[in-house]
Structures are given as C-alpha cells and as structure tokens.
C-alpha cells in the first residue's frame, strides 16, 4: 500500500508584518538616538543612588581619567569657537580661522596650551597618539590652565553648568585640585557625573 505522503506545505511566510515592525523600531531608535560624542579618554564613573540628570545645553565637562589626567570640554560647536576666542584673548595667542574650525570639532581635549596649535594642525592618527601620551591639562597651582579654560568657557555662557566626570580609580588629590580650581573661580555648585545604582534607603526600624 502506498503510504499517504504528507502534503508538502509551503514554507512561505508573509514577512510584511515583520518588516513593518522592524522599520517601526528602526524609526524609533533613529528618533531617540543621540550619538555618543567621541571621547578622547574612556572613563568609568562610579555609581551613585542619585537620580538627577546631567543637564543638557552649554555643559562644561571636566573629565579625570584613572591616571589623574584632566580633560576639558564644552558642549556646542559655536560655544567652543567663542571659547577659543576668549582664551586667545586672555593668553595672547592668535588662532587662525582654520584652527578655530578644527577646535570647534573637539568634544574633549587634554592639551596644554603650548601644544594646542600643533595638536590642531595634526591629523587624526597623530591626535590619537597624542591623547594617549598627553599629561592632560595642567591643574597645579603655578600653572593652572584649567582655570583659564573655565574662565573662557564661562565667558561664553555665564550660566553654563559644570560637571565633573571622574574615573572610579582617579586619585583623590586630582579631584581636590579640580574642586579647588572651581572654588577659586567662585563656582561652588557643580555636578558629579555618576552611573546609576537605584534607590537605597537607610535602614531605620
């Protein structure tokens, strides 16, 4: 007796619905996404239970990496251009239009002023190498360039909030130097960027 052959079912699946879903999600992610700005150093901030957000807008960000180097950055291309103008004026350095353009593309930098011009003139690869080996922005009391930069940035926008983003392993004296610099400039209120940890409550019976 011939066996009844199971009917071959078509494996065709209608994908239209799936395409719809895929593109819907795609649209969502495109709309909500903000590209992570390229960072010259990677830092892992410590976590805290704080639920406040880092303010947006003209944020001034001071980054400390694990080796104690300090980097500086300000949000906004135009802000950065103005900031370079300000610092050029304050430190009597002339910057060309091209240098300004290059500078305005830097989200973060850890270049002492004396190297800034050569840094701006160099290419991408050279910059990467430089970022690896740089000492960061000097914060010591006899040559506090961080102070100049904060002044320049505050000259662009007086209300700009200041955030400190430090690596977990950054040593405390670096943080102290940064805080003291801010205090010298009468910036007594700032944010510490941290990862989130969820809320915790002290145990009280």
């Amino acid at each position: 007796m011939a066996k009844v052959k199971p009917k071959r079912k078509s494996t065709w699946v209608d994908m239209t619905a799936m395409v719809d879903v895929a593109f819907l999600l795609l649209t969502f992610f495109i709309l909500v996404s903000q590209f992570r700005p390229e960072e010259v150093v990677t830092v892992t901030p410590p976590s805290s239970t704080s639920d406040a957000k880092v303010p947006e807008g003209d944020l001034i960000q001071i980054t400390m990496d694990g080796e104690g180097r300090v980097f500086f950055g300000m949000a906004g291309k135009n802000n950065r251009m103005q900031m370079l103008d300000n610092i050029g004026e304050a430190r009597a350095i002339e910057f060309t239009e091209q240098e300004k353009e290059e500078f305005s593309l830097l989200e973060n930098f850890g270049t002492p002023l004396k190297d800034l011009k050569s840094y701006l003139a160099s290419g991408k690869e050279a910059r990467k190498n430089y970022d690896q080996s740089t000492e960061g922005i000097p914060v010591d009391s006899n040559n506090n360039e961080l102070e100049y930069w904060i002044r320049a940035a505050k000259g662009v926008s007086r209300q700009a909030p200041v955030a400190i983003k430090g690596d977990r392993l950054a040593k405390y004296p670096v943080f102290e130097d940064v805080v003291n610099t801010l205090r010298d400039l009468n910036e007594n209120r700032f944010k510490l960027v941290t990862g989130s940890e969820g809320e915790q409550v002290a145990f009280v019976e």
């Binding site: 909500v32 903000q34 805290s48 704080s50 639920d51 957000k53 303010p55 510490l192």
Partner: peptide, 11 residues
C-alpha cells in the same frame, strides 16, 4: 545610542 542621560550628583 545612549538612551538615557547619565546620572549626576549635586555637590
């Protein structure tokens, strides 16, 4: 993407 803003602590 970075979906959410990082947290911050006031000091």
């Amino acid at each position: 993407t970075t979906l959410n803003q990082p947290q911050a602590m006031d000091l």
